[in-house]
Computed example of a mutant assay.
Amino acid sequence: MIKRSLENAGAMLLPEGRGRGAGVRLKFGRQTVKRIEIWENEGGPTAEDDVR
């Protein structure tokens, strides 16, 4: 029941395997993925932070 509720809310439960532990990811639709890709590429190239 909890698993089904999480999946209905957009969570994807990942089993253990291939040297990785179990985990949870959010599923996004194609339109959301496109918007995220645009947002991630808006800032230009990244640089080293000069924080000490």
Rank of each mutant, 00 (worst) to 15 (best):
P15H: 05
I38D: 10
P45D: 09
G43M: 02
N41W: 02
G19Y: 00
F28A: 11
W39E: 13
P45M: 07
I38N: 08
E40V: 08
N8E: 14
S5N: 07
A11F: 15
F28Y: 12
G23W: 04
M1T: 08
K3S: 09
R20Q: 13
E7W: 03
G10H: 01
F28C: 06
K34W: 05
R18M: 08
N41M: 07
E48S: 03
I38P: 03
A22R: 15
W39Q: 11
A47C: 03
T46P: 01
G29C: 12
P15S: 07
N8T: 08
D50W: 04
V51C: 00
R25V: 13
K27T: 15
K34D: 13
E7G: 00
G10K: 01
V33A: 13
I36W: 02
T32Q: 15
G23Q: 05
R35P: 00
N41P: 01
E40P: 01
R52Q: 12
I36G: 00
V33H: 07
G43T: 01
G23I: 01
E7M: 04
R4D: 12
G10C: 02
R20P: 01
V51M: 04
V51S: 04
G23E: 04
R35D: 14
L14D: 11
Q31L: 09
R4C: 05
E48D: 05
R30A: 14
V51P: 01
V24I: 15
F28P: 01
R30D: 15
A11W: 12
A9M: 07
D49T: 04
G43A: 03
E16L: 06
R4H: 07
L6I: 02
D49F: 03
A11N: 06
E16S: 14
G10I: 00
G19P: 00
A22C: 09
R20E: 11
A9S: 09
